[in-house]
């Protein structure tokens, strides 16, 4: 019998090993529950180098020992909800890209109503998918320990990201902070 859906939040600095940890965690859960691995890719290839990196990642996941399905959604992840069932393990990597895509998808970034809609939409999307899945793992990036005040857009982005991270920590069953490849359990039981 499947356990109730769970949410795991994984965050860390750039190149901290957070994605690798999250993928490993997902495969462990998949083996234990005989679930289906799904990679929710949020990146829009903006240049050739990025395209190559995304393709390389995809190849690695698809030819590896564990079979991953790839879902691509750069905005409005909530549209994937109905495609998800309770055998699915969903890995969303990562929130910073998703926030970036939603913020610059055409709304007015100076409009507070638009900004809170973006925040709500991302959280609702994550929770809706999580509630249908077996496990949802969400990866994000630590970027809030430097000055944000110099640039209005950076400030807005940082504020939304911080608020989303706070909500994710609150909703998550487990939270890991990855430092130099080592996971630190910040919330939840081992």
């Amino acid at each position: 019998m499947a356990d109730s859906p769970s949410l795991i939040f994984v965050t860390g600095g750039v190149r901290s090993g957070k994605s690798r940890f999250a993928e490993k965690l997902a495969t462990e859960i998949a083996m234990k529950t005989r679930g289906q691995l799904n990679y929710l890719a949020t990146g829009v290839p903006s240049d050739c180098e990025m395209f190559a990196r995304i393709e390389k990642h995809r190849r690695e996941r698809e030819t590896g020992k564990h079979h991953w399905k790839t879902m691509e959604k750069s905005v409005q992840i909530e549209e994937l909800t109905l495609a998800v069932n309770n055998h699915d393990i969903i890995l969303l990597d990562c929130v910073t890209t998703l926030l970036n895509n939603e913020l610059f998808s055409g709304g007015d970034v100076r409009d507070e109503t638009f900004l809170s809609k973006v925040k709500e939409k991302i959280m609702k999307g994550i929770m809706a998918i999580k509630n249908r899945a077996s496990t949802m793992i969400v990866v994000s990036n630590e970027v809030l320990n430097e000055p944000l005040a110099g640039n209005e857009l950076v400030f807005t982005y940082g504020k939304l990201l911080g608020q989303i991270h706070q909500q994710l920590v609150q909703e998550a069953d487990k939270v890991f902070l990855i430092e130099v490849g080592i996971p630190i359990l910040m919330k939840g039981a081992k």
């Binding site: 809030l144 944000l148 911080g162 608020q163």
Partner: peptide, 12 residues
């Protein structure tokens, strides 16, 4: 004196 620190928008 109690010092409270952390990153921006972390809920301090």
């Amino acid at each position: 004196m109690h010092f409270v620190t952390g990153g921006a928008f972390n809920g301090k």
